[in-house]
């Protein structure tokens, strides 16, 4: 598992022996990587990111190389997307009810801003006072990285006090980590001389190498299907794939859908006309972050933005069910 999502490696080579020593060693190494990334990026008590998030005041924190790499890429994406990719929305994600604790069998209110969970899994809208307060903690540009024989991040002194309780800025890097995992995991698999395979991290980030007879037939989920049926397929080989979608995790109040993707400019779930973005390219972590940013940009700005990236192919699905892509000719419609 990686950040609560299943991780899988599938090998299609007909000469490959499942459960052989090579297979077991490869899988052990891939799962060890997932565990290592969990210990860094999982929002749990003993993780690196948790230590960063609970640090108070301006603080220089020593971090691992993985944490440094992911933060470094995140800063790049933050700048390139004019802040529409922003990992410093952790408090807002929790405020709107999309963190792990909100999915527990029994939801226990722990924070002053928590509301009761309805039987359909939704929550009443939060107090705008908290939305504004947590939005003030999202200036990710103030986070600085340094390398001084080791890796460091300086957490800025960003805080807000509301109803007598003080909150400090906090990070959530889950929108980049699965892609980052795929970048590293495919190198592990390749190092064993394995050729025809694919890796999936939670179904939203994948690395596809080749198949014995050509490309993998990548299936893209219909965002309007309750059963996660595929709507289209496209041939892919030797590429990273990442997808974001408002349909992946949301609840509905008075006919309005509230998704887990927070628009950093409003502090609220995105109101984008894009419901699904799939990107195909070389750098999994980058695709992962960009797919989130593109949802926030919406179709028009998103198209303008992504066409600047020559080595990335895109497939957008908007709220009317229209499919917009630069590889339209390669798409097979399944429905």
């Amino acid at each position: 598992m990686l950040l609560g999502a299943p991780v899988a490696v599938y090998v299609a080579d007909p000469n490959y022996i499942l459960d052989s020593k090579v297979d077991r060693n490869m899988r052990r190494e891939v799962y060890d990587l997932a565990n290592e990334l969990n210990s860094i990026f999982s929002i749990e008590e003993n993780s690196e990111i948790s230590a960063y998030n609970t640090a108070i005041g301006e603080k220089r924190v020593k971090i691992s190389e993985h944490f440094y790499n992911v933060l470094s890429l995140s800063k790049e994406l933050f700048t390139q997307s004019n802040g529409l990719f922003n990992p410093q929305v952790s408090h807002l994600v929790d405020l709107w009810g999309f963190t792990k604790r909100h999915k527990d069998e029994v939801f226990i209110k722990q924070k002053p801003y928590d509301r009761d969970r309805n039987s359909d899994g939704s929550f009443a809208l939060p107090d705008q006072m908290y939305v504004d307060a947590f939005k003030s903690l999202t200036d990710f540009s103030l986070v600085t990285l340094t390398y001084d024989n080791d890796y460091f991040v300086t957490k800025p002194d960003q805080k807000v006090t509301i109803n007598g309780e003080t909150y400090y800025s906090a990070l959530d890097l889950s929108s980049v980590v699965k892609g980052y995992f795929c970048d590293l995991a495919h190198k592990i698999v390749q190092s064993y001389g394995i050729k025809n395979y694919y890796i999936s991290a939670g179904g939203s980030s994948l690395y596809l190498s080749t198949r014995p007879n050509g490309s993998w037939d990548l299936q893209i989920v219909d965002p309007f299907s309750k059963n996660r049926e595929a709507i289209i397929s496209v041939p892919v080989s030797n590429k990273q794939v990442a997808a974001s979608g408002t349909y992946q995790n949301y609840y509905t109040i008075d006919g309005v859908n509230y998704s887990h993707i927070i628009d950093p400019t409003t502090g609220a779930p995105t109101k984008s006309d894009l419901v699904s973005v799939t990107l195909i390219g070389e750098d999994g972590a980058k695709l992962d972050g960009l797919s989130t940013a593109l949802i926030n940009m919406g179709q028009e700005k998103g198209l303008e933005f992504i066409t600047n990236y020559q080595n990335i192919n895109y497939i957008f699905i908007n709220n009317k069910g229209e499919i917009i892509s630069d590889i339209q000719k390669d798409i097979t419609y399944l429905k």
Binding site: A12, S200, Q219, V241, A243, G245
Partner: peptide, 8 residues
Amino acid sequence: EIPKPVVG
């Protein structure tokens, strides 16, 4: 058989 890769 290996399942087809699905993203989304």
